[in-house]
Computed example of a mutant assay.
Amino acid sequence: MSVTQALPKTARLRTLGMSAEIAARLRTMIQEGELPPGVRIDEKAFCEAFDVSKTPLREALKVLVSEGLVLHRQYIGYRVAPLDLGELRETFETLHGLEAHAGELVARRMSDAALAKIERKHQAMIDAHAASRRTDYFRINQEIHQLIVDSADNAVLSGIYATLMSKVHRARGAANTDMLRWQESHEEHEAIMAALREAGRPRLPQILREHSENTAKEVLRVLEQTLAEPAARVAGARGR
């Protein structure tokens, strides 16, 4: 094969590498609430923002469509996929039980090394909160929850929890748009840490469950309100 014949494939590999990076950036923006459910993805604006052509952007969008994060309609374009409130409620209900069960196992099995790692993560989260770095705070918050569950030393539990959390990750980002809930979540994490430090950790299962329930309540409230606003505008327009 000549050098000339190989060039298109080389260019294609560069394009695919670029599209993977774009997909990762868009995925983070969607999961952390920067691109809310239902919003239209303006291809021209994102090409300019990422300084790329439409080809790698569309390759990236195809990946996100396959992941269920983005919807595509011919002649309409791309939109961030909406959230299914019914599925979210059921997923949160399951997570409440997993959090409590993890707390029971962690109370007996957590090692000193695991606790020390969580303490370091918690301090990083405190620093992010103090600096109003909301995105960093949310990311570290998620990491702490997974570390706690992993400390139960049950691979099946850790795997199920990670899978379910990936389903609600995007929705949980909505709770952090509310400053009051952000402060409440921060205080609840302080209570979780206090429970982790106690001898025998008797309060841990209940505290983890309550924190999960409070987060779910706020996430669903925000999403229900968000979904209700467009419907109210449409109804108002029709009544004029």
Rank of each mutant, 00 (worst) to 15 (best):
K167A: 13
L69N: 00
N154H: 09
R109C: 03
N176W: 15
E43V: 15
Q5T: 14
A232P: 00
T15G: 10
D84Y: 13
L227S: 01
A23T: 12
A191Q: 08
G200S: 02
L105W: 05
D178K: 04
I144W: 03
G173Q: 00
R240W: 12
A237P: 02
R181S: 09
L180D: 13
E210R: 10
G68R: 05
K54V: 10
M1P: 07
V106S: 00
K54P: 05
E21T: 15
Y78N: 04
L13T: 13
Q183N: 11
L208S: 06
K62M: 04
V65L: 02
V70L: 00
R240S: 09
T177K: 05
E87S: 12
R221V: 13
E198Y: 00
A162S: 13
D42L: 05
G200H: 10
T226R: 07
E34A: 13
E187W: 05
L147N: 06
E32R: 08
V52N: 00
E59F: 13
T91E: 02
V106F: 06
T10D: 10
L16H: 04
T215R: 11
Q74E: 14
A49V: 01
G97F: 02
R139C: 08
I76P: 00
A216G: 00
K54A: 14
L157Y: 09
F138Q: 03
L204I: 14
G159A: 07
G159D: 12
